[in-house]
């Protein structure tokens, strides 16, 4: 496996640190004029999602982590694994475990496309698109004429996610939701 020297460190680079795959967030070069140079590096551990700050002597290197992001279609779950398929026509399938899908679980809809991060060829995490469109399967009855009033109520979507929606939303409508904040964006026409 290739390795990267501190002077190649930049945001987005994936490296192995203490045996875990990490993504570099920031790399700051510090050096007294006549003194030894160091790199103060912020990384996120991709296994634990925890942020690390580490200092390296400039010129040290870290092994590259075999981490790649691929677009994959969600197929189904057998209860233990969630199965994804490459969208490149290869029909290659990858089973993701509960830990890998945990952040995406409430947004998973069959046949939609997600970003699957593979580490050494196995799914490490699944990231939903920033916006998803999902049908309302349960909410209190809509109140006509209340469209301008503000006010919200919970609505359960087809994937099980619960989001706060305006009072006029009714069962069967399709909503656009921001998966980063978990917030309702708007109604989708034809829903």
């Amino acid at each position: 496996m290739a390795s990267y020297s501190t002077n190649e460190f930049r945001g987005g680079l994936k490296v192995l640190l203490d045996g875990d795959p990490c993504i570099i967030l920031e790399n700051e070069f510090v050096k007294p004029g006549k003194g030894q140079a160091f790199n103060r590096v912020k990384l996120r551990n991709l296994m634990t999602n925890r942020q690390w700050e580490r200092t390296f002597k400039s010129g040290e290197s870290l092994e590259a982590a075999d981490v790649i992001d691929l677009e994959m279609e969600y197929l189904y779950t057998d209860g233990e694994f969630w199965h994804f398929m490459k969208t490149d026509g290869s029909f290659e399938q990858y089973p993701a475990d509960a830990k890998a899908v945990s952040d995406a679980l409430k947004w998973l809809k069959e046949q939609d496309v997600y970003t699957v991060t593979l580490y050494n060829g196995a799914p490490l995490s699944v990231t939903p698109p920033n916006f998803v469109e999902l049908e309302v399967v349960d909410t209190d009855p809509g109140m006509k004429g209340d469209t301008a009033q503000g006010g919200t109520k919970p609505a359960t979507l087809s994937t099980g996610a619960v989001v706060n929606v305006p009072l006029f939303i009714t069962i069967g409508e399709v909503l656009k939701v921001d998966t980063r904040s978990g917030e309702y964006v708007n109604r989708v026409k034809g829903g």
Binding site: P32, G35, Q36, F38
Partner: peptide, 12 residues
């Protein structure tokens, strides 16, 4: 080295 340690403390 000892001076490297001093430089690290100086910078950080």
């Amino acid at each position: 080295s000892r001076d490297d340690c001093l430089d690290l403390l100086m910078s950080c």
